[in-house]
Amino acid sequence: MKSSVIVFPASNCDRDAAVALEQATGKAPDMVWHGDAELPATDLIVLPGGFSYGDYLRSGAMAARSPIMRAVIEKAKAGTPVIGICNGFQILTEAGLLPGALMRNAGLNFVCRTVTLKVENNQSMFSSAFSKGQSVNFPVAHHDGNFFADSETLDRLESEGRVVFRYVDNPNGSARDIAGIVNDSGNILGMMPHPERVISPLLGGVDGAAFFKGLVDAVG
């Protein structure tokens, strides 16, 4: 299985994502620069965390319009699995691949700690390693993680089972405690917490290793 990590100026979790993917797939991912126009052949695309373009204008706004995103959008719409973590989630909403927006944390503080998430839906390819209702621990590290969408959109996400992860103790004011959602086809996941940071006991946890392993098994 071949994977790709998109690297934007000021991405800072790209190498963590690469290590997590190599651990799960047995193969180092292709690191693809934002200015490239084409993606290599790939079965999984990761948009990593960071502060692409210094969060200018809005978090993820510039990155969502960068040259590589045209190729990412094309692949995503054709069904290639895509994960956006943290800044990657912001980029996916800005690119229109996921609904809603990530706003300034309700408490205005940058929040950097491990949070507990509840797995709301384990039928997704991104959560099949877990059981429904299971608690998993992933770190968050963001200033703009406050998920916002109008109530119709939120109702639709809920009724279609597209809320995959929910905060047990909401750190940022996100609507309905939403931590991670998928698109209507189920092949695009956006989440603020960082599974790539907990892939070894040495890093303080292994729930992220299970996340990536489950995804790789599901994608095949």
Partner: peptide, 9 residues
Amino acid sequence: KKLLANPVM
């Protein structure tokens, strides 16, 4: 519409 504002919010 394309960049300067995000119509979601």
